[in-house]
Amino acid sequence: MDLSTVTATLASKSYDKVADICDNLMLQVATDGIGYHDDWPYAIHLLSHFYVNDINSARFLWKSIPSSIKENKPEVTAVWRIGQKLWLRDYAGVHEAIRGFDWSQELQGFVAAFSELYTKEMFQLLLSAYSTISIADAALFLGMNEDDATSYVQQQGWTVDSASRMLTVKKQPVVTEQKLDPSKLQRLTEYVFHLEH
């Protein structure tokens, strides 16, 4: 079984493409009747579905993994633990699951990229859901200690009230599309018509 495409995609840090590559390769291997259970990169495959926010596909993949792999490859189980926390919307638990395992060299960069992506998604969630939030709650969502979380959000323009230990969210300016006035469109049409004739 040739996993060079998966390896090359990981090396190029094109993590958003790994799930499709693994899915297609798994289908190809199954079609060819080749066994893949023992040396299939299940941890990478599972994490790739979490990376593209496809938890349902990850759940189906998890169900198809032989129990011997689940029992003998702790990294596969560790990745699944991340998925369980995602499924339960245990935001702090996702960060704990990421930090709670000593990832292999092969997976370290991918896990770090997923962690960074997840932190950005949580920041966007906070941005859209809150106008103020406690430092402790923000730290939980972002998977950081309180000082790091405070520093992170301050870099995004949020303000801190040290006395109340609250953060004030800086909302992003809403970009509105400029509507074209029908009368302006009519004048433009007449002008172009005049130029052509």
Rank of each mutant, 00 (worst) to 15 (best):
Q28K: 04
V29C: 06
V29Y: 06
V29K: 04
V29G: 02
V29S: 04
V29H: 03
V29W: 04
A30H: 02
A30G: 01
A30P: 00
T31W: 03
D32Y: 01
D32A: 05
G33P: 05
I34L: 13
I34H: 10
G35Q: 14
G35V: 03
H37S: 13
D38R: 05
W40H: 03
P41M: 09
Y42H: 11
Y42L: 02
Y42P: 01
Y42V: 01
A43F: 09
A43R: 10
A43M: 08
A43G: 13
I44K: 08
I44M: 08
I44W: 04
L47V: 09
H49S: 04
H49N: 15
Y51D: 12
Y51Q: 10
Y51P: 04
V52M: 07
V52S: 03
N53G: 01
D54N: 14
I55C: 03
I55H: 10
N56V: 05
N56F: 03
A58Y: 07
A58T: 06
R59I: 12
R59W: 09
R59A: 07
F60P: 00
F60M: 13
K63P: 00
S64L: 07
S64H: 10
I65L: 06
S67D: 15
S67L: 12
S68V: 13
S68L: 08
K70M: 10
K70S: 03
